[in-house]
């Protein structure tokens, strides 16, 4: 991996030859309903992988399981070869997974600045003494700079989404997990978010797992997995995404 310029610094390098993320034979239940069925997936270092599928097939369930919010009944999830089973979400964040959940989950009664500082919790030192937000965050999302003292809950949907991504980037993750970052957001902001994510990938070399419905954004990824009723039913390079696949798995 090469750093094209120094704009975004201090990200962990991937050198040890493992896949960034390896999911095998994962089964997840909500109570007695079987949601994820034998899911296999792998993300190579520095790659952007997109998960597509219609509403309710289990995409968010998979993201939550990766983060440790849901406990799988069987199967394994490895981050760079390290088994994540049994680790709580905060340990997984510290291992380098940055999570931008569906619905953004900005902390409403904290300021933008405090929300961003919380992103530092994933670093070994936590948010301990830091008082300043690094400049690279504002290069990605200039709007945030002007409203550092506003409450997170007062932002518009698009601004909250940008804040949620910036917050995840603050923790310098190895793997960025984005769950429908463009859902319910106006087209011009979607393009901004898309550009920011591309810039992050280009300049830091981190891996990205993206859940997305917008074809344009899906095409930015290197590889796709398609999910149906909780199983992975197709995968391939996004360059080879055919009309049929798009018709079948994207709610266009």
């Amino acid at each position: 991996m090469t750093q094209t310029n120094g704009a975004i610094a201090d990200f962990p390098a991937n050198t040890d030859g493992h896949s960034m993320l390896d999911i095998s034979n994962l089964n997840v239940y909500y109570g007695e309903s079987h949601i994820l069925r034998n899911v296999d997936m792998s993300i190579e270092p520095g790659k952007m992988v997109c998960l597509i599928g219609r509403n309710g097939v289990g995409k968010t369930t998979l993201m939550k399981t990766i983060m440790g919010l849901l406990v799988p009944r069987s199967g394994s999830i490895r981050l760079q070869g390290k088994e994540l089973r049994g680790l709580p979400p905060d340990r997984r964040a510290k291992l380098g997974i940055g999570y931008v959940p569906q619905g953004r989950e900005v902390i409403p009664r904290l300021t933008i600045k405090e929300n961003l500082l919380l992103g530092l919790e994933a670093l070994p030192k936590g948010a301990a003494k830091a008082k300043e937000i690094p400049e690279d965050i504002f290069e990605l999302f200039p709007v945030l700079k002007t409203m550092l003292n506003r409450m997170g809950g007062d932002l518009s949907g698009g601004q909250q989404q940008q804040l949620a991504i910036a917050r995840a980037i603050m923790g310098r993750p190895r793997l960025l997990v984005l769950d429908e970052p463009t859902e319910g957001i106006q087209p011009s902001i979607i393009l901004e978010i898309e550009a920011a994510v591309k810039k992050i990938v280009r300049e830091t070399g981190i891996s990205v797992l993206l859940v997305e419905q917008h074809l344009h954004f899906v095409r930015q990824a290197d590889w796709y997995y398609a999910m149906q009723k909780g199983s992975i039913v197709a995968s391939g390079a996004t360059s080879g995404l055919s009309k049929d696949v798009i018709q079948e798995f994207l709610a266009v």
Binding site: G68, P88, A93, Y99, P101, L118, A122
Partner: peptide
């Protein structure tokens, strides 16, 4: 204080706070 910030975050959204790396326990 940093711990005060963590407490306020967990009070408002426990799951997301954990996902950010805050040791909720």
């Amino acid at each position: 204080t940093p711990w005060g910030l963590r407490i306020r975050a967990v009070t408002q959204n426990r799951n997301m706070s954990a996902c950010l790396g805050i040791p909720t326990q």
